[in-house]
Write a protein that binds this DNA or RNA. Structure first.
Length: 215
DNA sequence: ACCCAGGGTCATA
DNA sequence: TATGACCATGGG
């Protein structure tokens, strides 16, 4: 089975996901940092706290007292670390001249700069590139590894960059909208794929995925 | 009470 | 370069 085939199966079964949830590029970037190893429902609470305080902007986030920022982020977990990361990101964002400047950079340059920010790793950077800047980037997450391992298409322990280039090579001819939907579909589907491998030989592997995905 | 979630950093070996 | 500890909330 090839990479576009899996996409077609997922898309036929679930339909478009309409990612990223939320409003505008900056909110996408904030969400990308806050959702690190965290359920999205908790992230929404934190973002709502920022909105209620009228502080969902890089200016407000860099200006507010650290302790208060951390309180707003509390429901998303890791709130001390995330307050630090979000502040580091917003400082960088303002230094770089904001969205209008950043959007002029090439994808490799922009990616490298994102990765230089403390708290922005490869997956968060790629979330931002794809969902805030609309770049043709494939996001690798734990669900991606799990699903494609179950399908027997990857080993699962490949490097992030190795997987990314493999996926992007398999999607050379598709539009950015497919990248957008593909990752969203993977996350959606991944939530009901079992985690433990040996016990799932019959329930989560090929057969069930194929049956489930083909409707 | 336990396990996990749309990761990343830092300290060790 | 490769593991492991750590961060912390809310839902199942």
């Amino acid at each position: 089975m090839r990479i576009p085939t899996v996409y077609n199966m997922l898309y036929r079964h679930y339909g478009p996901r309409g990612w990223w949830p939320g409003d505008g590029p900056f909110e996408v970037m904030v969400g990308a940092v806050l959702t690190q190893n965290t359920a999205w429902t908790n992230v929404e609470r934190a973002i709502n706290n920022l909105k209620d305080a009228d502080s969902l902007s890089p200016e407000a986030i860099t200006a507010v007292h650290f302790k208060r920022l951390a309180r707003w982020l509390q429901p998303s977990g890791y709130f001390n670390i995330k307050a630090k990361r979000l502040r580091a990101f917003c400082n960088w964002y303002l230094e770089q001249g904001g969205f209008a400047r950043l959007r002029q950079l090439t994808t490799p340059v922009l990616r490298k700069r994102l990765l230089s920010v403390n708290g922005i790793g490869p997956e968060t950077a790629d979330d931002i590139l794809l969902y805030a800047f609309g770049r043709r980037v494939f996001v690798i997450d734990a669900y991606t590894r799990r699903i494609f391992q179950r399908l027997g298409l990857i080993a699962g322990d490949e490097s992030y960059e190795g997987l990314r280039s493999w996926f992007e090579a398999g999607l050379r001819r598709v539009d950015v909208q497919v990248f957008n939907e593909y990752h969203a579909l993977i996350v959606h589907h991944g939530k009901h794929v079992c985690r433990t491998r040996p016990a799932c030989e019959t329930c989560c592997l090929r057969r069930r995925c194929a049956r489930k995905l083909s409707g």
